[in-house]
Amino acid sequence: MHRAIDYLMAAGIGSTISFMVVFNTRFGEVASMPVSFIFNHSIGIIIITIIMAFLRIRRGTPAVRQKAPWYLWFGGAFGFLILNANFITIVNIGASLAMATAVFGQSLGSLMFDLTGFMGRKTYPISRKKAFTLSVSFIGIAIMASQGGTFAIPYVVIGILTGVITMIQMVYNSRFAAYKGVFFSARNNVLSGLLIAITIYLFTAAEETVNAFSSLAEVPIYLMLGGGLLAIVVVSGTNHVIPRIPALYSALLLSSAQIITSIVIDYYLYDLFSGRLLLGAVIILLGMMGNVWVDWQDKTARGKPSVV
């Protein structure tokens, strides 16, 4: 029962990621990406702090936290790269293809963790069948990308790298959460991302960012609050669920929900839809489902006693 709930949570988080990314992108289009990033992260910090204060009052005692390694305190750096890369890809190639390339990258990232056991993950071997199913997903990416021609190639590469970084961030933050707790980890992720962003924007887009704050009145309230609120759900949810299921399963559930949701978003918000996008998305999902099936077969085979 608990495992089923974890799977449902992973799928729900995947769908939430698509909405969060689109909210942040639309916010950035109306104002600017630096303003969107700074505003949403500030909202996130305030809300998480309120939640933590409420939980402490309810509990009556401070939460017990362990000392975490110094290198786990900088999860916001990944978030900074991811949100800015998502903005670039969605603006140029649409939500469907941007999410599809990102989730393919998440699969690559999950395989890296499964093979190496990096950051304390359990190791899972890769077979030729797994390599084949991953190749099937890549074919789906190629079909979707072909709609944009050669123009789309650089953004497809950015999208794939964004997915790899996303998977690294999820595991990285979940490791920090194991020491400090889900909400502490989520707040630190948002806070470190905000500090990194302010530092970078100060040297690269200071005047543009200050001027863009004057356009906040033009931003709908759901965009102003939506990205920050959904970010809390995503970060807290992944901190909870990622350590509880294999990386390959979490990648499948997250990616499937992201692709399906992004197709719906593209249709209703951007009036963007084609048979090629749908076909590519279906092929990607088939490849990912094949990955899970092969993984299940491999585990079943390893669990059987050997015949002498």
Rank of each mutant, 00 (worst) to 15 (best):
D295M: 13
A177G: 13
A100W: 00
R187A: 12
A177N: 01
M112C: 10
I13E: 02
W293P: 01
L278P: 04
F138E: 04
T300E: 15
G193T: 08
P154G: 11
V171I: 08
V157Y: 07
L194I: 03
V292F: 09
V292C: 12
Y201M: 13
G117N: 01
Y249M: 10
S306L: 13
S262C: 09
I260K: 02
Y155R: 01
L225M: 14
Q66D: 12
T16V: 13
R187M: 13
Y124A: 03
L286S: 05
E207T: 15
Y270T: 12
W293I: 14
M289Q: 11
F183I: 09
V30L: 10
A301N: 15
Q106Y: 00
L278R: 04
I245T: 07
M167W: 07
A152I: 04
I200V: 15
G226R: 01
I45V: 15
S262G: 10
R26K: 13
I139V: 11
I48E: 06
F23W: 11
K130V: 00
F78L: 02
S127K: 06
S262H: 09
S255V: 06
L248E: 00
T166Q: 09
R244I: 08
I265L: 00
I242G: 03
I143Q: 03
M9P: 09
I50F: 14
Y270N: 13
F203D: 06
L8I: 15
R187N: 13
L134A: 06
F37S: 05
Y222W: 14
S36Y: 11
